[in-house]
């Protein structure tokens, strides 16, 4: 028994926020400097009334429209997000109804950010190999911009909104890739380096948590908005991601030179360049594709995969290592081998 990634699709909101838009709001910022620091020119922004669930539905509908999958056959729906529609109930339950999935479909939310897609692949594969499921719909969707203060350069320039959907199946026919082993990890000591401090039960919202203050660098935010210690997160990334990838390569008994593509969470251009340098990879081994969409957190890896497919950047037989890492801290690396004849998908993707 194996598990296969069949199809991937995504949705990005129509509205974009360019670096120039941010400079209009922050006259001391510089659009070229933002690009130099992040590799990002613009990011997509969900409409005020548009939720992560809404974006997830759009991504799934895009996927279903080209796949002809029978909704009745989907027996698990995993919805991964850090910006769910409600505290209660799980957004996955709402999506089960909106997507007209079977009532026998198990549906649950997973609260993870940038590691969500690779965690989701690991969960889906485990369910399939364990015989608990045959068709798993994995939805990763985040509206991170709702947490960002537009006057906080650490977060406002990086994050964008978006959603992705992937079908993971026990059936090999028509599959894009076989899902291999994963290595996963967690280090809760990093929880406070990337956090929305207020709004949960630890620190409920109040007049005080809504009060905006400036940090030492002049960035504005309140306690209900996203705080990111960029240097600490970068330090975590440099120490954890190469090590996690080495663990995975040891498990699958391959050298890094044998890997065609390292498909990493698209955090920011500087960080990905640094990882490329740190791991001594060729530029073509580690694609960077966030200039037009920014960091879409949980959706970034499947969006990268789909956009590479659409550009012909993924070929039959390729060996790929996926790496999701971030908030938590949490990380997961997964091995994928592109099928030798993923004909139907590549035709759709071309």
């Amino acid at each position: 028994m194996n598990a296969y990634l069949h199809r991937v699709h995504y949705y990005l909101p129509e509205t974009v926020r360019t670096n120039e838009d941010l400079v209009k709001l922050n006259p001391t910022w510089n659009a070229d400097e933002i690009f130099r620091r992040t590799g990002i020119r613009q990011r997509h922004i969900a409409a005020p009334e548009e939720t992560s669930g809404d974006m997830g539905v759009r991504a799934v509908e895009n996927l279903l429209a080209e796949s002809g999958i029978n909704r009745e056959q989907i027996d698990v729906l995993i919805f991964c997000s850090q910006s769910a529609d409600y505290y209660i109930p799980a957004t996955a339950c709402i999506l089960q109804r909106r997507l007209q999935l079977s009532k026998s479909c198990a549906a649950f939310d997973v609260s993870l950010g940038c590691s969500a897609f690779t965690y989701g692949l690991w969960m889906a594969r485990s369910l399939i190999l364990g015989g608990a499921a045959r068709q798993v719909l994995l939805v990763t969707s985040d509206k991170m911009t709702q947490y960002c203060n537009l006057h906080d350069m650490v977060t406002a320039v990086v994050f964008g909104d978006g959603a992705a959907a992937a079908l993971i199946s026990a059936d090999e026919q028509g599959a894009l890739a076989m899902i291999g082993p994963s290595v996963l990890g967690t280090d809760g000591r990093g929880a406070e380096s990337l956090i929305v401090p207020a709004g949960g039960s630890r620190c409920p919202r109040s007049a005080e948590t809504g009060r905006v203050t400036a940090d030492a660098n002049g960035n504005l935010r309140n306690a209900e908005q996203l705080y990111m210690d960029g240097t600490e997160v970068f330090n975590f990334t440099l120490s954890t991601v190469p090590a996690g990838i080495r663990r995975l390569l040891a498990e699958i008994k391959l050298e890094k030179e044998a890997i065609d593509l390292f498909l990493l969470h698209q955090a920011n251009g500087f960080m990905l360049d640094a990882l490329r340098r740190s791991m001594k990879l060729k530029p073509e081994q580690l694609p960077i594709d966030l200039a037009e969409i920014g960091n879409t957190t949980s959706a970034s890896i499947p969006i990268l995969i789909r956009r590479l497919l659409d550009r012909g950047g993924i070929s039959p037989g390729m060996r790929c290592v996926l790496a999701g890492f971030g908030v938590g801290y949490s990380w997961a690396m997964t091995y994928l081998t592109i099928q030798e004849s993923p004909v139907s998908f590549l035709q759709h993707g071309s």
Binding site: R37, N217, G230, T231, L238, S239, A274, R277, S278
Partner: peptide, 14 residues
Amino acid sequence: DSLGTMSLLLVLTS
């Protein structure tokens, strides 16, 4: 600045 600090971190680690 923050980018300079991260560049230093990259040099130290790499």
